[in-house]
């Protein structure tokens, strides 16, 4: 199995799945994983995992625990844990996360920012 492929049934396990057959716009504020493989315009806010799959075309902001980008996004991606940009991705806008990984070949026109970790109280 290629490294950037998740198990085949991961889409069915996601709480929300939008395939390449779907064109949509709106806003999500959910606590489940979301997989976007179609055209979506709007905002996504989730406490779970967010994936923009190969055919995903997102215009808007994403706020999630983890974000994996294989498709295209124009907007701000903000993750609590990490953002994973794969080689097939096209990213425009901002990437904000404590850990950001970008695979060679990805088309990036974005500002990357790592928020400073909060200071520990003694």
């Amino acid at each position: 199995m290629p490294a950037n492929k998740l198990p085949f049934d991961y889409r069915h396990n996601a709480g929300v799945y939008l395939s390449s057959l779907v064109t949509s716009q709106g806003s999500f504020d959910i606590q489940e994983d979301i997989v976007i493989n179609g055209e979506f315009r709007g905002e996504v806010k989730t406490t779970g995992f967010c994936e923009i799959s190969e055919n995903g075309l997102v215009t808007g902001d994403i706020d999630a625990r983890m974000i994996t980008i294989l498709g295209s996004i124009d907007g701000t991606c903000r993750a609590k844990d990490n953002i994973d940009v794969k080689k097939s991705a096209k990213v425009k806008g901002h990437l904000i996360a404590p850990a950001i990984s970008i695979e060679s070949g990805a088309q990036i026109d974005a500002r990357c920012k790592q928020p400073s970790s909060p200071q520990r109280m003694s």
Partner: peptide
């Protein structure tokens, strides 16, 4: 035209 728990969505899909 969908009302979500927090949010909304309009979508068109082949079905």
């Amino acid at each position: 035209s969908l009302l979500l728990n927090n949010g909304n969505l309009t979508a068109s899909s082949q079905a």
